[in-house]
Amino acid sequence: MTHPMAANSEFQALNAFSATLGQNSDRTQAAGGNTSLKHDGAMWIKASGTWLAHALERDIMVPVVLADFLAALADKDPRAETAVDFVDQARNSLNLRPSIETSVHAVIPHAVVAHIHCVETLAHAVQPGCEAEIARRFATLGDVASAFVPYCRPGVPLSEEILARSTPATNVLILGNHGLVVSGASVAEVEDRLNRVCQALALPHRPAQEADLGKLAAIVAGTNYRLPANPIVHGVALDPVSAGHVRGGSLYPDHVVFLGPGVIETDDIAAGEAIRKPEAKDGPPPMLVLPGLGIVLHRRTTTAADALALCLWNVASRLPAGAAIQRLTPEQDYQLTHWEAEKYRQALDAKAKAS
């Protein structure tokens, strides 16, 4: 079937841009991040559980009737939480469900919006009082009108906070403990602005120490855990500075969703597997940190867990020694692990692994 927007050049550009973002692990990871295009009364937005990296391979965009959805948001209609009832189903042949961040994209007045979990942004956004340093780095970017939005639960609460802290001219949002939003009149404009913003936020990072993979393989043999796909992620356990930064609580939402709340450190895999944090969902911890050795992932985890383990290293290794860290609270972790929209995204991830 021909996609209803297949001939639209801006839609084609959005898909190409989305794929580029999704294929860069420094910009976004797994099913994280989302892009959108407002056109002719509809907002085409990445579907929940899909990967930006696949934008050129498959249909990942779903149309939302913008005026109806914005009216629902203004009326505090609970249906706005999932946005499902506002999808133009006549143009949604795959029965896709809109992103959990549909409300965030909708309240931003610009035609094109990109929301990513850029590791450079996250390394700033988990540090309390980061606004002054970010403003300093943006000072030479004349076309950037930015605002900082403290952490709140993604979805409708976040969109309400964005409305309260931005103006119609705002085109860059730094989301505390969450990520980056860049918007503009066209895909080309947003892509250019996003690249320059990420470059301005770039931070040096510590190199990863080499793990003893043979020893780790012997440790996981016969257990329900496996080694991660990329050995660089063992730096989380091997680098004392990074280990200190990730200890004590979650840094951002997708970590909670795909790796569980915070980190669990253990010298014994069986003991670690039995740990159940009150704010976590049912089941064993997706990730365990073995101090001084490396990290292991539960065998039920998918490639999304590998992507988020890499993200954790990429963020932690950019945080300087002695940096103050703002972490999510157990209550905020619980909001994410027991949120229906995130359970849906996790179910899609598990289904993809089984297929």
Rank of each mutant, 00 (worst) to 15 (best):
P278A: 06
A274W: 06
P286F: 14
P291Y: 03
R299E: 14
D282S: 10
G283C: 08
R299N: 10
D267M: 08
E273D: 14
M287I: 00
I264R: 06
G283D: 10
A271D: 12
R276N: 05
A304K: 01
M287N: 05
R300C: 06
P284L: 12
T266Y: 03
H298N: 12
I275S: 05
T302G: 11
I275R: 09
R300G: 14
L293N: 02
A305V: 03
E265M: 09
L288T: 08
G272F: 10
A271Y: 03
D268Q: 04
V296T: 11
A304Q: 14
P285E: 07
A274E: 02
E265N: 01
G262N: 11
V289R: 09
E279V: 00
G292S: 09
D282R: 13
T301N: 13
P286Q: 10
D267Y: 02
T266E: 02
M287T: 00
I269Y: 06
G283Q: 10
E273C: 03
I295N: 04
T266Q: 00
I295S: 09
G262T: 08
M287L: 15
A280S: 13
E279A: 04
G292D: 01
K277W: 05
R299S: 13
I269L: 05
A305W: 02
P285T: 06
G262K: 07
D282E: 15
T303C: 09
L290S: 02
P291T: 14
T302A: 15
D282A: 14
A280V: 07
T302M: 08
A270R: 07
I269C: 04
V289F: 09
D267E: 14
D268N: 13
R276Y: 02
R300Y: 11
I295K: 07
T303W: 06
L288A: 07
A304W: 00
T266C: 04
I295E: 07
E273Q: 05
G292L: 08
V263W: 12
P291M: 02
P278T: 14
I295Y: 13
A271V: 04
V289A: 12
A270S: 14
M287D: 01
V296C: 06
A274Q: 08
R276W: 00
V289Y: 11
M287F: 11
D282L: 02
G294L: 07
A271K: 10
G283S: 11
R276F: 00
L290D: 01
D267K: 12
R299Y: 04
A304G: 13
H298D: 04
T303D: 14
P284N: 13
G283R: 03
V296P: 00
V289N: 11
E273P: 00
E265C: 08
L288E: 11
L293K: 13
G262Y: 04
I275A: 07
I269M: 11
L297G: 09
R276G: 08
R276S: 14
A304L: 04
L290F: 04
E265P: 01
E273Y: 01
K277M: 13
L293Y: 03
P284Y: 04
I269G: 03
L290Q: 05
M287S: 04
E279D: 10
G272K: 02
G292C: 01
R300V: 13
P286G: 11
A304P: 01
T266N: 00
G283H: 07
P291D: 05
E279N: 08
P278V: 12
A270D: 15
V263N: 07
D282Y: 03
E265Y: 11
A280H: 05
G262F: 05
L293V: 02
H298Q: 05
L288F: 04
L288S: 07
P285A: 10
I295A: 13
K281F: 07
